[in-house]
């Protein structure tokens, strides 16, 4: 589903990703952990070309992102992204946030988009906030609305970039609950997070990144209970 080959990314002379090789299978939930500055967010942002790739290849459903002929907008519409800072559109109501891309990109009618939007809001438990503006929502509600917005494009892959890092602790649970439900429904997910509990419970595979490399990858149980690399051990001893 996602195939990353020899991915390299530099900002100027700063090499953030050195040589990343990952394959994500359909319906798999891959959790990426690692210290800040390890390149995990950059890795995620390369998967839908929010960062231009310096070297290597990323394939989504066998389509090469680096190929000039690839329609990057179409590809992005099939890869949902959830941001740490939510990035809801503050000038639009919650329901309009969700309806915008389906209407403008997929050319759905306003009615169809609304019906679908309300259905998604019901799913994330926010149907009563449909007509509210994002600024009046709590952090957890904002993030759930942002997830609904991404799902409205019916993506086959969802990327999560530290979705709970900007939330007050009591709101982390409600967002993780929505993500767990998605995982149970068989969504292919790549999740960058500091929530080790989520990684253990939902992840099919955990990648530990440090210094622009994937240092170790394994099932959550193996990686957390029996880490092989020194750097993994050092990191886990600090966060667990």
């Amino acid at each position: 589903m996602i195939e990353v080959k020899n991915l390299k990314k530099s900002f100027g002379t700063n090499e953030v990703l050195k040589d990343i090789n990952v394959t994500v299978k359909p319906q798999e939930v891959v959790v990426v952990i690692g210290p800040s500055g390890s390149g995990k967010s950059t890795f995620l942002r390369c998967i839908n070309m929010l960062e231009t790739i310096t070297g290597g290849h990323v394939f989504i459903d066998r389509t090469d992102l680096m190929d000039k002929k690839t329609d990057i907008n179409k590809l992005r519409s099939e890869v949902g992204m959830v941001f740490q800072q939510f990035n809801l559109f503050p000038h639009k109501k919650v329901i309009e946030n969700i309806m915008l891309a389906p209407m403008k990109v997929r050319k759905l009618s306003a009615e169809t988009a609304r019906v679908k939007g309300l259905e998604l809001l019901r799913k994330v438990g926010l149907v009563d906030k449909a007509e509210a503006y994002p600024d009046s929502l709590s952090g957890g509600q904002k993030q759930r609305a942002a997830i609904a917005r991404a799902l409205a494009m019916e993506p086959s892959i969802m990327l999560f970039d530290e979705p709970t890092s900007a939330l007050d602790p009591e709101m982390v649970g409600e967002v993780l609950e929505v993500m767990k439900q998605l995982a149970r429904e068989g969504m292919t997910m790549v999740v960058v997070t500091h929530e080790m509990g989520f990684a253990k419970e939902v992840g099919d595979r955990v990648l530990f990144m440090d210094g622009g490399l994937i240092v170790e990858e394994n099932t959550p149980k193996e990686l957390f209970d029996n880490p092989q690399e020194e750097r993994t051990k050092a990191f886990l001893s600090k966060v667990l």
């Binding site: 907008n73 990035n87 000038h91 891309a101 991404a150 494009m153």
Partner: peptide, 29 residues
């Protein structure tokens, strides 16, 4: 905020669409 453009583009909007529906209405205010 740069995140607004990124969110719009991540939903598959073109640069022009993101400008028109997301960036300019907020900038105008």
């Amino acid at each position: 905020n740069r995140g607004q453009m990124e969110a719009a583009r991540s939903l598959g909007m073109t640069h022009g669409q993101a400008m028109r529906y997301v960036i300019l209405p907020q900038a105008f205010k």
